[in-house]
Structures are given as structure tokens and as C-alpha cells.
Write a protein that binds this DNA or RNA. Structure first.
Lengths: 343, 343
DNA sequence: CATTCGACTGGGACCGGTCTCAGGTTGTCA
DNA sequence: TGACAACCTGAGACCGGTCCCAGTCGAATG
């Protein structure tokens, strides 16, 4: 009876994942030594290390993340937090670019990405609770609006956070990764002027987003006397808003338009065409982001390329620094003018 | 001195998250009772329950996920696994739809979504290891190709898995959520015929994907004698492949084309225009998916709508069933013809 | 030759939960 | 009144790691 039971036991343990104790037993060392080998292997004799490594290889041992997190207090994961109203974000190809980049950067570090969506108030509540419970080590915040109330919660909880764009008023407490919005807008404005355009309009983004405010600033600065207040419309970065803004804009005499996002540019192009204007012959239209949509659009859209891969890589890198104890810091990256067919 | 030290201690413990022991002490019960209250609260006296609930409310206690996972053996999270070559997937708006739906469904159940990308061989390796280590309870597999080697690994490891589309040969071992491809294709083919078209071509997807194979089957079945083998081209669901396929197709006489994805349809429309054909006047072009791109495309694309919200909800629901011990099962959902302007 | 130092090792406490199980109350039924 | 069930409770053993610390041993130092 006893024999049968122990037989059953060993059957079970053969099925289960090996633990650090089994590795220790098999290698003839203590758990502590195995742990040392796993974590860098300092102060371990070559013999011991080899025995442990062989045992690990033989059994296919993998450390239990949960046990480790419990013991160390580190979660080994970051949250990718989306706070935009869903429609906006999931339409937006840029979010996918950031997500992939972040996932890639984390995988290289043997960490994981947890996706959090805080669209509805109920979702925001449960997300806030999740984050303050310390289930993740840090937060990658994807939100263009500066006024996001979740920001204050994150700061209060004190969880390391990095965001893209610059949330005004929090420069000291949060790390940010952004592009030089003003310079980027100047570059595009200069390009449009260089193409010979004089009556140049802008479809700006919301004023409470960095991209909405500073791209307009750069545009105005560069245009100087050419700048015409009546040729500025607002959109919310979406296709529809670009279409609506362009429809209004067409009531004025305009020969070029700079939209603050590729999607708005696409909407603007559609509006221009419906009005019987040719792009770029009758009216030039440029976008911003180079989100993938710009290249495949018919015709391909001239735009400012944001360095998405660098942005996501930097977000992860800076966030990990902060988690390791560094002070929050901000990184500003360069954009690049990509001339295609629409302007 | 002792006083100072205990003062310091209580300061520290005030900063740290409360544990179940502190709740127990505050409520004047044992840890076991607190645990019972947290998990449903059966076999707990009203008095004890109330005391515990008050203590939880007062302290803002939240259970430590890692500790719980360690004790229960359940991870409390699912993996959202992308196995496509990155380009294809992140261009594809459908993936974002599925991702959001899944995240939402999981948040409601207080579980989390871990994003895993298995693009490169190195990534595949580490993902496989991650999954077999049991760090997540189940896998939502996003891969349209049936031949995916990761599939075999998942089956071997025995981790509960659900996929969208039907991976041939694994119907017994994996759960699948899919749409009725054949019927959907027949519906669209019937629509094109009803519009008066007779020379109808198809830009099919890869033959090793369910959407590639069965949409063609349905198309052929419905067309009957109208079906013309020479009017079938292959693409890989991408915009570029649609453009290339359409360019070839235009060498034949054709008055309508059914593309197996919206992106290919968009590419096909671009190709048709470059060749000087008007859509839909000279040639009707329809897509498949209704991924968001179809509605905002200029002109809006006629397509078959896949029920993305239902698909993601069902994936989560079925996967959780399997994790709870149920047998794998397959769900087939209906699609809907959405007539817009291109066909 | 005694002392000190540094590399290496293992024991045990701990992280914060869950879960089994033995025991204590109370109520009901024979 | 005794037996037995139903309800409620807390002690203690886990889960699988990390990490502090005490201790061993050989070599170098004074």
C-alpha cells in the first residue's frame, strides 16, 4: 500500500514541472546554490555550476514566475495602458506599432507585457485598482490627452510610468518620450512653402494634446506672414474629423493643407475629391505620423515620419531605468519628412 | 530606542500594501476566515464577514496576485499569441479588434491579457518556453496558417488553446472560433451575380489558411457555370498582394472581383484605378472582414462583416471553459453582407 | 603557527496567499 | 438525552522561489 502510494506520487511528480528543490537534489547541491546559478552565478564553484546546469538542461526546468515575484516583490511585467476612447485608439495604426515595439523590447528582457484598456469608467476603476495593487512594475501610458485623470492616480500611487507625448504639468514626475512637435511642423510647413504653396491651411489636433497644440505652433512660426488664422480647423485625429474639417476648409481659398495625422489627411483627401478637387494638382495635402496608412493610401500620403520603433524602445528602456531607481526623464526624438504623392 | 524602532516599523507597514494577516488582525479573525470572505464567503458568519469587509474597505486591501497564483496553481491570465510575420499582422486592423475584445472580456473576469509575439525564430523559442512553463492558464492563438509549428508545441504541452479559423487536422485537440467561410463567400458571390455581373474574378487568400481555401470553395459553388478558373488570383491578404493580383486580373475581361480581405480589396481598387477603370462603374470590387478600413475607404467598400466582438468574446468564453475542464469545442458564427459603394 | 580573508555552501525564515483538517457550537431528530 | 449533522473557525502545512546569515575550508598574511 505504501509502495503503491509512493509510486503514484512519483508518477505525479514526473508529470509536474520540476522545482528548484528537485534540481538541487539532482545536482547534489542546495536550493541556494541553484538559485545562485540561475541568477548570474556569482560565488558558485565551477563544479557546482556545471552540475546545476546539466540538471536544468536534463529536466527542462523553468523558474516559476509567480513564486519569484512573490519572493522578490518584482512583478516582471509592465502594463501597456490604453486610456483613449476605444474608437480612436483601435482605429489608429500607430497604437499597434507601439504595442509591437514594446512587446518586442520586453521579450528580449524576459519580461511580459500586460494589456490594459481603460475606456469606460468601470474599466478605469478596475485598472486603477489593478495598478495600485502592484501587479506590474511599471506602466506604459498611451494617451495623448494631457488632462487624463488617470495620470494623477498613477502619480499618487507612485508607480513608475512613461508616456508618449508630454503631459503638461507633470514633467517632473513622469518620464516622457516624444518627438519635437514644433520642429516637425516647421519642417512640413517649410516643405509646403517650398512647393510654391501660399495659402496653406492646417487641420490641427485637439488643443489638449501635445500634437494638437505644438504642431500648430510650429506651423504658425514657420509660415510667418503667410499664416492665416481662418485657415485653421480642428479635428480629433480621426478620418471622419479630417473629412469634416476639410469640408469646412474648402469654403475658403486654399492650395495646401497640413493635417496633424495621416488619418485626418486621408479624410481631407476624400473631402477634397468629393468637392471635385484633385490631389495634389488642385490642392496639396500632407499628414503626420507615417503610420502605415500613409504609404498604402491611394495616392500615397506625404507625411512626417515618427520613429515608432525608437519611441517604443525608448519607452521601455526609460521605464526600466526608473523602475531600477533612476529619476524620471524625458527623451525627444527626431522626425523625418517623407515626400510621397499628395504634397 | 525600541519605541523609535517600532515607530519606524509601523511607518513602513503603513506604506506597504496590507496583507491578509493584517486584515485578519484588524477584523479579529483568522487568515482563513478572511480568505473565505474573499473567495465567495461561504461558511462564514455574518458578523465575521462584516468585520472582514469593513477592514478591507478601511485599508484598501487587494489580494496579491502572485501569492494567490503560487498557492492555487492558476495564473489568472491568458496569452494573446500572435504568430504571423509581423508585417502582416500589425497592418491588419482585425487583430486590434480581436485584441480589444479579448482584453475587455478578460477584464470583466478580473483576469489579465499577456501579449506574446512570435515572429522571429528566436521569439518563437522563448514564447514556447514561456508557455510550457505554465505562466499563463491558456492561449488565444491568432494565426491564420494551419501549418504553424507552434500549434504542435501547444498541443504537446497540453495548454488550453483556442484559435480563430480552423486549423485543419486539430479539430479534436483545440477549440476554434470561426465564421462559416463557405456560406459567407456564397452570399457575396450571390450578391455580385444579383448585381448583374457575369465575369466575376476572385482574389483568394493563401491556400493554407481557412479563409483562403473555403472562401474560394463557396465562391466557386455559388457561381456554378459562371465560375472561371482563369479569373482566380492568389494574395496574402495584404494591400500590396491585392494590388498585384488585380493588376494581373485586369489582363482578362472581368466586371467584378471578390477579394478575400478588405485590404486586398483596397489594393485591387487602387490597381483598377491606375488602369483607368472606375469602381464600381467599370468594375465592382468587394472585400471581406469589414475591418474598419472598409467603412473609411474612399469609396467605402462592400464587404462581408465578420462579428469581431462575438469572435473575441467567444474565444475567451470557450477558452475559460476548457481551462475549467471542459472538452475543446468549436463555434461557428454568422457573417453579414454589408453593401457600400464598391459593389 | 595563529589569524584573517575570501570563495563557496546550506539552513532556515520569509514573501502572501490557499487549503485541508481537526475541533467547537448550535440545532434537530430519535 | 444522546447522536449526528450543519455551520463556523483557526492552526499549520504548503506553493516555489529569494535572501540573509552562519559556517566550512584552503590560502595568504603577520
Amino acid at each position: 500500500m505504501l509502495w503503491v502510494e509512493s509510486q503514484a506520487m512519483s508518477d505525479v511528480s514526473a508529470k509536474r514541472k520540476p522545482t528548484i528543490r528537485q534540481i538541487a537534489a539532482q545536482a547534489g547541491v542546495s536550493r541556494s546554490t541553484v538559485s545562485r546559478v540561475i541568477n548570474g552565478g556569482h560565488w558558485v564553484s565551477p563544479d557546482a555550476r556545471q552540475a546545476v546546469e546539466e540538471a536544468i538542461l536534463a529536466t527542462g526546468y523553468t523558474a516559476n514566475h509567480h513564486a519569484r515575484s512573490l519572493a522578490t516583490g518584482r512583478a516582471g511585467s509592465l502594463a501597456f495602458l490604453l486610456t483613449e476612447p476605444q474608437q480612436l485608439l483601435f482605429d489608429d495604426p500607430t497604437f499597434a506599432l507601439l504595442l509591437r515595439g514594446a512587446a518586442e523590447a520586453l521579450a528580449q528582457r524576459a519580461m511580459t507585457l500586460v494589456l490594459l484598456v481603460a475606456g469606460t469608467p468601470a474599466e478605469r476603476e478596475s485598472v486603477a485598482q489593478f495598478l495600485s495593487a502592484g501587479h506590474v512594475d511599471g506602466v506604459i501610458l498611451i494617451s495623448s490627452h494631457e488632462s487624463d485623470p488617470l495620470l494623477d492616480q498613477l502619480i499618487e500611487v507612485g508607480i513608475p510610468t512613461v508616456c508618449c507625448g508630454v503631459p503638461l504639468g507633470h514633467e517632473r514626475e513622469l518620464s516622457t518620450i516624444s518627438v519635437d512637435e514644433v520642429a516637425s511642423a516647421r519642417t512640413m510647413a517649410a516643405h509646403l512653402v517650398a512647393q510654391g504653396h501660399r495659402r496653406i491651411g492646417m487641420i490641427a489636433g485637439p488643443d489638449d494634446t501635445p500634437g494638437g497644440r505644438y504642431r500648430l505652433v510650429g506651423f504658425r512660426d514657420e509660415l510667418g506672414e503667410l499664416f492665416d488664422e481662418t485657415l485653421v480647423e480642428r479635428g480629433d485625429y480621426s478620418y471622419e474629423s479630417g473629412l469634416a474639417a476639410m469640408t469646412r476648409m474648402l469654403e475658403h481659398d486654399v492650395d495646401a493643407v497640413f493635417a496633424a495625422s495621416d488619418r485626418m489627411a486621408a479624410g481631407a483627401i476624400a473631402a477634397a475629391r468629393r468637392a471635385g478637387r484633385r490631389v495634389p494638382e488642385d490642392i496639396a495635402i500632407a499628414g503626420f505620423d507615417d503610420s502605415g496608412l500613409a504609404a498604402t493610401h491611394e495616392p500615397p500620403i506625404t507625411t512626417m515620419r515618427q520613429p515608432w520603433d525608437q519611441i517604443s524602445a525608448q519607452m521601455v528602456a526609460v521605464l526600466l531605468e526608473v523602475i531600477a531607481g533612476a529619476s524620471p526623464r524625458s527623451v525627444i526624438l527626431d522626425t523625418e519628412l517623407v515626400v510621397r504623392e499628395t504634397a
